[in-house]
Amino acid sequence: MIRPNEDPLKHPISDHHHGHDFGERLVLHRHSIVHHLEPQVKILAMFLFIIVCVATPIHFWQAFVVYGLLVLGTILIAQLPLNVVARRSLIELPFVFFAIMMPIFGSGERVEVLGVSLSRLGIESGASILVKGTFGVLCAVCLSATTPAREILRGLERLRLPNLLVQIVSFMIRYVNVVSDEMARMKIARLSRGFEAQGVRSWRFLANVAGALFIRSYERGERVYLAMLSRGYSGKLPDTGHGSAGIRQWAQGLLLPVLALLVLAMTNIWMSR
């Protein structure tokens, strides 16, 4: 619920220019192993890697160095430009602030670092939040930059997300184009009349925008839904007949979390000696 201050109307969804599918705009098309992996492999690999990462105590710093190299390696293999990855990671900024505050204002034993008195616990916790959060964000950026929204949806479906949720995601992806088109039109109308969101006075206005947006998208969505009913829709989207990932794909994808797990185990043995 807290995000860095930004133009309320500037967001991936409203940057939508016609003819680009939702989530497709996030994709940087390359021919890499990461791009070609089946989505369910990527999602599961990412999830497991993050779990390993989150479960690692922060004083296993050697492990985090290796995790960092693994993430960086994945980004490089996927041929993603680092500046784009960095820009998309800005979403975690509020928590970076939070992490920076921890050593400064934290309680408990204090240590001198470069002449500044800092909380030891604060340094550890701040670092933990910063490092784990960053890795998580980088993984998600990597996923969305190499996988179109539709594919992510398929991945979720094959990972056995309940059918109703899959359908909701699918309708959401479908309707997002509708809403963003409406938003784009309304934004043009708004900007051409010199509107700028400013503080409390714009709330009333923004509520009207929200209300109008809802009705407009609802009615558009309703019409799409009616068209689906007209063509015999009964709650099941057609299975478009796609293959599943082979052992090779799983091996390639799961290399990431498996390596991380190995590193964790080795660090654990090494630290306890």
């Binding site: 309320p8 602030f97 909701i168 995601v169 959401m172 997002v176 809403v179 929200a210 998208s217 839904y225």
Partner: peptide, 27 residues
């Protein structure tokens, strides 16, 4: 259930983009 909830999901998604300042550089 699905089309309706999907639409509401989009809408929540859109509404969550409406930021308002709460001070200290965050909104």
């Amino acid at each position: 259930a699905a089309p309706l909830a999907g639409l509401v999901a989009v809408f929540i998604f859109a509404v969550q983009m409406i930021n308002f300042p709460v001070g200290a550089g965050t909104s």
